[in-house]
Design a protein around this nucleic acid. Structure first.
Length: 513
RNA sequence: GCGGGUGUAGCUUAGUGGUAAAGCACUAGCCUUCCAAGCUAGCUAUGAGGGUUCGAUUCCCUUCACCCGCUCCA
């Protein structure tokens, strides 16, 4: 089926319904009516998530890729605390810069980032006659003139003083006299609202400002905080990486699109420390590696996009250097557009420098061979969303097929499928069950497998199709006489006979990613 | 945060100001030698709270969740 056709037929509603029906993803706190921005992974969802996480870990830490010089790169793992000293988040810029004050326009229902607004003000003798008009930064002089004229003011921009929104004297008190960027009336802007995207809580039994702490909004900082510890406790040498998988929390203004943007989510991040002069080389290397990784999981080339960030969308730590690349996936709810799956950012030496300043601890790296070479390493960060990755895998796998009883199947790569195989005695009578049980007991030592005895064989195949089990092994009368079983392939529904002894080897072969 | 929509069983749909109905799924049993067949029995629902009323799933208010659009999104 062509991708376009698939997108026509696959509806997010069907995917969400399947996820709940079969135990991939449940609404969090379901029996209490749910809670906005939170989701739970069910029995099959957690298997899928763990499989993706383990493959990532294998690709990063256990068996990292071969570097440009032909030898494997060096990456070590870490699992840092979700709550760190709050100074860490001041240093990282999250306390000050992670929350953007917003201004709403009551008339037009539009919302603006206050730091993107400028105010043009014309001095008047009478304070009651304050002439102040707000514009979105970057509005052309021509458009500004036009709008000023329309409001009955002088169209000559040089008659005005320009302020950043927050630099305007007593801006909050004067809002009733200021024109919004798109408003016809003055005084329609609300005071700037602070959106603090970091969750906070308190350490200790009493709550107060002095023991306020934050839940990490990214796992990366835990890595930077341990940069020295890792250097001092292991024999790694620059260039090397530190990898971490874990939960992160963001108080998103608008959680949307199922588990795509949730307030509690999981990240897979690796910080690659290298010499500043080599940053470009490693940046390109990791973009290539990360793209290959997602393709190897079965995401199609057509539904993946690699895109460089524009200057205006760069985060506070990525303003300089090589910038940021996004690996994006064409989700049903973004199509024909794409949604971010992984960002590869050149964080330069921003974070280490910040932590050196705030903590007073030297973050300089000394080359162990040439001790005259000292520098604060630059960082290339491939940061992937584990939660988003699971969603992409689910969306990619969901395949409509009117020619089978279930009407669809989940086309997971065997290495990712929550269940690798089902063992099905053709009937619940005779000698089929004992033989099936024997095979099941053998396979469960090595693979996640199901033994399903009840109901007719068609229903059981259909159930396995819905959860994406790649293989079904069926025991019938021939098994009793010649020791062979049928293998039923999920995608083609074709069957072949193999000997019961070779089933484990057959599965092992298919699991290779 | 704004605007619009939706909310009855696991799913899809009925229905009513007065005992909430069905199909599929699910569970148990029978039957069944390869793709949701058949028979029997069983389980499960008006998102939450309040108001009006003798009585509310139905009318009203509030709230919550989800979907769409806007906004936002290291």
């Amino acid at each position: 089926m062509k991708l376009e056709d698939k997108l026509m037929t696959v509806d997010m509603k069907d995917i969400v319904a399947l996820c709940k029906r079969r135990g991939f993803v449940f609404p969090a706190s379901d029996i209490y009516g749910g809670i906005n921005g939170f989701w739970d992974f069910g029995p099959l969802g957690v298997e899928l998530k763990n499989n993706l996480r383990d493959l990532w870990w294998k690709h990063m830490v256990l068996c990292p890729p071969i570097g440009p010089d032909g030898t494997p790169v060096e990456i070590v793992g870490l699992d840092s605390a979700i709550i760190q000293n709050p100074k860490a988040w001041e240093a990282s810029g999250h306390v000050g810069g992670f929350s953007d004050p917003m201004v709403d326009c009551k008339e037009t229902k539009l919302r603006y980032r206050a730091d993107h607004l400028i105010i043009l003000h014309q001095e008047q003798g009478n304070p009651q006659d304050l002439r102040a008009v707000t514009f979105v930064e970057g509005t052309s002089e021509e458009d500004i003139s036009k709008r000023l004229k329309k409001l009955g003011f002088s169209p000559n921009i040089s008659d005005y003083k320009t302020f950043k929104f927050f630099d305007f004297p007593y801006v909050s008190e004067n809002l009733d006299k200021i024109f919004g960027p798109d408003a016809k009336e003055k005084g329609t802007l609300t005071p700037p609202k602070q959106f603090n995207l970091m969750f906070h809580t308190f350490v200790g039994a009493t709550a107060g400002e002095d023991n306020k702490v934050y839940l990490r909004p990214e796992t990366a900082q835990g890595i930077f905080l341990n940069f020295k510890n890792v250097l001092d406790s292991t024999r790694v040498r620059v260039p090397f990486g530190i990898a971490q998988v874990g939960k992160a929390f963001r108080n998103e203004v608008t959680p949307r699109n199922f588990i795509f943007r949730s307030r509690e989510f999981e990240q897979m991040e690796m910080e690659w420390f290298c010499h500043p002069d080599e940053a470009k080389k490693w940046f390109d290397f990791w973009i290539e590696q990360r793209k290959k990784f997602w393709l190897s999981l079965g995401l199609s080339e057509a539904s993946l996009d690699c895109r460089k960030h524009g200057q205006d969308e760069l985060s506070h730590y990525a303003k300089t250097g090589e910038g940021t690349y996004d690996i994006e996936y064409k989700f049903p709810f973004t199509a024909p557009g794409f949604g971010e799956l992984e960002g590869i950012a050149h964080r330069s030496n921003f974070d280490l420098t910040q932590h050196e300043k705030h903590s007073g601890v030297k973050m300089e790296y000394m080359d162990p061979v040439d001790t005259s070479k000292r520098f604060i390493p630059h960082v290339i960060e491939p940061a992937a969303g584990l939660t988003r990755g699971v969603l992409a895998l689910i969306c990619e796998a969901y395949t409509v097929d009117a020619n089978r009883p279930s009407g669809m199947y989940m086309n997971f790569h065997p290495a990712l499928a929550p269940k690798k195989a089902a063992i099905l005695p053709l009937t619940a009578k005779e000698e089929h069950v004992p033989l099936a049980t024997k095979l099941y007991l053998e396979l469960r030592e090595e693979f996640a497998v199901d033994l399903d005895i009840k109901q007719n064989i068609g229903k059981r195949y259909a159930r396995q199709d819905e959860i994406g089990t790649p293989y079904c092994f069926t025991i019938d009368n021939d098994t009793v006489t010649d020791g062979t079983v049928t293998v039923r392939d999920r995608n083609t529904m074709a069957q072949e006979r193999i000997s019961m002894d070779s089933v484990a080897g057959y599965l092992r072969e298919k699991m290779r990613a």
